[in-house]
Nucleic acid binder design. Sequence first.
DNA 1: ATGGTTTTTACTGCGTC
DNA 2: GACGCGGTAAAAACCAT
Length: 322
Amino acid sequence: MTANQTVVKPRQQTQLADEASSTNDSRTVTTCPECDSSALVTDETHAERVCNDCGLVLNSDQIDHGPEWRAAGSEEFDQKSRVGTPVTNLMHDKGLSTNIGWKNQDANGNPISKKRRAQVERMRMWNERCRAKTTAERNLMNALGEINRMASALGIPNQARETAAIIYRRAVEENMIIGRAIESMATAAVYAAARQCNIPRSFDELEQVSQMERLDIERAYTYMVRELGLDVPLATAEDYLPRICSNVGVSDETRREARQLIEETTQVNWRIGKNPIGVAAGAVYTAVQSSSDHITQEQLHQETGMSCVTIRKRYQQFSESV
DNA sequence: ATGGTTTTTACTGCGTC
DNA sequence: GACGCGGTAAAAACCAT
């Protein structure tokens, strides 16, 4: 919109990612960069994150997120604990408002009188009604609920959901929602967040879980990218690889091999302009050929939506470039 | 709207079980 | 014969301009 928005572009994404996870970057890594194993464990005593397979230490001197006190038993734990759920962008009030418990009991766990119960019920009702004071808050509640629902349906993890929520909140702040369908903007936020978190989902997939049509989602998305100056990285073949591998069920060895094939050919000419999904599928197929796994082109076609012909072509190109 | 590129579709034959 | 695979041409989809 304005000049200063384009200037902040490079910061935008890191800001979003940081805000969303509010943790160290390597904590969000799910596979070992050395051996590609997913057996990463957090060693609390040494404050390290270590790969169980090759022993690589991903990061040391981690912040201990646990409490600063110690408790001997669960009773003492309950007593000393003085914290609630973490602040989340996925709720319109960031999860900070008061909730009145649903149980009709007093603090000691004894049932309350009939008269008192009616009173509590009225309080509960009005508390619920007052939670979203304005229409804007009500809309936000609605949208964040939708974001959560779609993310669940697509198997998108919490970190990306938080990112989606932040993107949507920014759109609200910029008055971008007015005159547009909440659902389309919420869907676009999920799409952008998924890509920013390197777990891209296609417009087709989003269309399946959204109430909006593909074109509306695409429009909302381009509008968001433009107006918010979102820095959304292109989806790469590597991004698609883990999902394809686990869905199709190949060994870790094959997965590693496929990743290597992709990495080795990133600068190769034939990769230019090719659909990363096809590249990933081709890499998996190529890797499968030299392994004990039995995955057919048909299976990969079913899983990725890429045609057998395309998978074959990528396979040939991978084979030639080795 | 256009034109170049990529992907899909539909068809083919071959080898293997 | 069913299946997986490899090849091809034409059509469709995609994308930047």
